[in-house]
């Protein structure tokens, strides 16, 4: 995989009259990667997206697009799917898709051709003359998705692309996103849906209170937030389990599954190893299963944003 970056952000500052929206943001977004942009509401994600879209100008700092300074000519290389409906309700689907495609610089003829391809691909062939207000949320989301990717942008910015979709449509869009990635599109995914972040993102950054507090690959980040937590399933007496080893660990949670089967969650302290712990308990209880507990992205998010 190439390690080239499609977007590089250096020392980005943006303030509004009453507050700071972005404070010294540095980010690099890899080519053909899915990049999760996470953060609580009001953290500054929208401002960052607007700067990349050139709707807003930063007060300080630079954004580079494929090595060049970001400029008007890059507009056509970026596709943006805003949160919310993002379509004219009263307009017909086809007219609207053509309109948006032309705004992105496609000719009418090209746009029509590409629309036919996409409409067929996503099973929207006979919606051309429907009004957007007559479409279901899922259908509208598909149309919006099509209008975003139609001009084949190098970078796609998707703001909550899966919200409100049923599992079938959600899977459909997820697969499309993965396919776009395969075809060398870089994707910035802004979402609160941590499950899909874990599923499809290669890298994430968390922004909180206008600062970037974390960036890295999913596995890296999870590793950094690991706390040496283990879950142990055993058969035996709880007293025997807890008294078997003295010191070096903490019982975080304990649950009796049935008569003699228990599940314990423990945290190993300092350099106390799981081997030592097993040695200690192995004569007192029967070990059925041992698992290392890795934090979910959701856990990381909560920890990172509340520790601040």
């Amino acid at each position: 995989m190439s390690s080239k970056n499609i977007i590089e952000i250096e020392g980005l500052h943006k303030s509004y009259s009453d507050h700071k929206a972005l404070d010294n943001i540095n980010l690099s977004i890899g080519e053909s990667k899915i990049f999760g942009l996470l953060g609580p509401n009001g953290a500054g994600k929208t401002t960052l997206i607007r700067i990349i879209n050139q709707i807003l100008q930063p007060d300080q700092g630079v954004v580079r697009f494929a090595g060049e300074l970001l400029s008007r000519k890059h507009i056509h290389s970026i596709g943006y799917l805003p949160e919310e409906r993002g379509l004219y309700k009263k307009m017909k689907v086809g007219e609207q898709a053509l309109y948006l495609a032309q705004l992105k610089g496609l000719s009418k003829k090209d746009a029509k051709q590409k629309l036919n391809y996409w409409f067929e691909k996503l099973g929207a062939d006979n919606w051309w003359n429907k009004k957007v207000e007559d479409l279901s949320k899922g259908m509208a989301q598909k149309i919006q998705f099509i209008t975003t990717v139609l001009h084949e942008p190098k970078v796609l910015i998707l703001d909550e692309p899966l919200s409100g979709l049923d599992p079938v449509n959600s899977l459909l869009i997820k697969n499309e996103i993965l396919e776009l990635k395969k075809n060398n599109t870089s994707i910035i995914l802004s979402t609160h849906d941590m499950n899909s972040v874990e599923e499809i993102c290669d890298e994430v950054a968390i922004i909180n209170n206008s600062k970037k507090i974390l960036q890295g690959s999913i596995t890296e980040i999870k590793k950094n937030y690991e706390e040496n937590l283990w879950t142990i399933l055993y058969r035996g007496n709880q007293m025997n389990f807890t008294n078997a080893v003295w010191g070096g660990w903490e019982l975080i949670n304990h649950k009796t599954i049935n008569d003699s089967i228990n599940k314990a969650e423990i945290k190993l302290l300092n350099d106390f190893t799981i081997n030592k712990f097993i040695k200690g308990i192995v004569d007192h209880v029967e070990i059925l299963e041992i698992n290392k507990k890795t934090p979910s992205i959701s856990d990381v998010f909560i920890k990172a944003t509340t520790d601040e």
Binding site: Q54, I75, P82, E84, R85, L103
Partner: peptide, 16 residues
């Protein structure tokens, strides 16, 4: 108001 509330304005003003 329509363009603002459905966020489509953000797409348009990146082009004009």
């Amino acid at each position: 108001i329509e363009e603002k509330s459905n966020r489509i304005v953000e797409i348009i003003i990146s082009s004009v």
